[in-house]
Amino acid sequence: MQSPLRRILVGTVFFVGTLIIAVTGYALLDCPFITATYMVIITVFGVGYGEVCPVETPTARMFTVFVIIAGYGSAAYTVGGFIQMVAEGEIKQVLEQRRKTKDIENLQQHTIVCGYGRIGQVLAHKLAETQQPFVVIDQDVGRLTSAEELGYRVCQGNATDEQVLEAAGIGRATCLATVLPDDAANVFITLTARGLNPKLTIVARGELPSTEKKLLLAGANHVVSPASISGMRMANLITHPNTIQFLDQGDDRNRLNELLAQIDVQVDELKIPLNSPLVGGTIADLEVRGKGTFIVVALRKRDGEFIIHPDHSVPLAPDDTVIVLGHHGD
């Protein structure tokens, strides 16, 4: 089957060629040019005002029949190309939508991300990096288009709607992250999702401190406050810059820092002052003095050099900073 564009092009060329041949033919039958053009128009377009050119001979009549058939045929062929183009576009759109729906229907143990704003985009990027299957729900067509361009599965609609959550496969999902900037919407989504899947792990975003309790009561397993995390991050950059630099050297260490906080373990830094008895000593001497309450995981020399997992024999100098790992309060 020819492509719609090719059909339109061929039909248009044939139609224009028919008009030119028809006007020339009537002119050869001793019909003035303007009259011949008028004759062709009322013949091809079926206006039917009568014959203004002499068509009394069998040749003239056969020519007129040719003009009618060729004109109608080429016009119908061109219009058919336009109809095919529209129909194929709609059919392709329907098939593409069906393919996306089928893809989501086949998902098992996936994550549903409600909201594709700044936090949702970061979350989706991390899930894609770790090859975790997920579906993004959002109402904004522009955001979903950008998500689809990255190869993400998307579901358009309001995440507070049960039907939208079901279309995203909430009954087969293992985790749902609701990261909308509206706390009330996050509470409602959490409540709805918990009712649809009691075994679901729900991670919810809460902007206000008072929202955390409501989200937990609604069924959230974890509540994350972006403002609180940002504030703590900025405070740590001021109070523990060397520790943050050590932990920021890779994504794995960022995740390690989050896990350590959950088990009441702290990464801290100790600066060696000029008059410290530890000056001239070694990493082993420091750990002995600590009586096993911490371990040294890194050393930042005063010249800025970072040594990860320093050997016990490494000497300590004034203005060195030792990164240690231990329990809170030790």
Results as ranks from 00 to 15, higher is better:
74 S>A: 04
66 F>Q: 00
61 R>N: 05
24 T>P: 00
117 G>S: 11
58 P>T: 02
117 G>Y: 01
103 D>M: 14
41 I>L: 09
130 T>M: 12
25 G>C: 03
79 V>M: 06
53 C>A: 04
17 G>N: 08
95 L>G: 00
98 R>S: 12
99 R>I: 06
116 Y>M: 11
27 A>R: 11
122 V>K: 00
109 Q>R: 09
61 R>W: 14
71 G>C: 02
28 L>Y: 01
61 R>E: 13
36 A>Q: 06
109 Q>V: 02
80 G>M: 05
52 V>P: 08
90 E>V: 08
86 V>L: 11
28 L>C: 09
94 V>D: 08
102 K>P: 00
108 Q>R: 15
103 D>E: 15
121 Q>H: 03
70 A>K: 02
138 D>M: 08
27 A>D: 13
134 F>Y: 06
67 V>F: 01
26 Y>G: 10
33 F>V: 15
129 E>C: 10
27 A>N: 12
120 G>W: 02
66 F>H: 02
61 R>I: 07
56 E>G: 15
132 Q>L: 13
85 M>K: 02
132 Q>F: 03
80 G>K: 00
140 D>R: 07
112 I>G: 05
127 L>C: 03
116 Y>S: 09
73 G>C: 05
102 K>W: 12
86 V>F: 12
22 A>M: 09
81 G>L: 03
40 V>Y: 00
137 I>D: 08
120 G>Q: 03
105 E>H: 12
129 E>T: 09
140 D>L: 12
117 G>H: 01
85 M>T: 05
97 Q>K: 09
25 G>K: 01
33 F>N: 11
146 S>W: 14
98 R>E: 11
84 Q>F: 01
115 G>R: 08
32 P>S: 04
38 Y>R: 07
42 I>V: 13
127 L>V: 01
124 A>T: 05
122 V>A: 10
127 L>Y: 09
140 D>S: 12
91 I>K: 05
30 D>L: 11
96 E>P: 04
102 K>I: 14
19 L>N: 05
19 L>Q: 10
20 I>E: 01
69 I>G: 03
28 L>D: 06
107 L>I: 02
70 A>M: 12
50 G>H: 11
85 M>W: 15
100 K>N: 11
146 S>D: 15
33 F>R: 14
68 I>R: 08
33 F>K: 10
85 M>Q: 10
43 T>A: 12
34 I>E: 10
44 V>L: 07
63 F>W: 02
84 Q>N: 05
133 P>G: 10
37 T>F: 15
22 A>S: 10
139 Q>S: 15
133 P>V: 13
134 F>L: 11
64 T>R: 14
147 A>K: 09
105 E>T: 03
76 A>M: 06
124 A>C: 12
127 L>P: 04
17 G>V: 01
72 Y>P: 02
39 M>Y: 10
106 N>K: 15
91 I>C: 00
48 G>H: 06
29 L>S: 10
21 I>T: 07
69 I>L: 15
42 I>R: 09
36 A>N: 07
24 T>W: 14
92 K>F: 05
69 I>V: 15
44 V>S: 06
48 G>M: 06
81 G>K: 10
37 T>S: 11
61 R>L: 15
36 A>H: 06
79 V>Y: 01
84 Q>E: 14
19 L>K: 00
59 T>W: 07
20 I>H: 03
27 A>I: 14
21 I>W: 14
32 P>Y: 00
80 G>H: 00
117 G>I: 09
106 N>R: 14
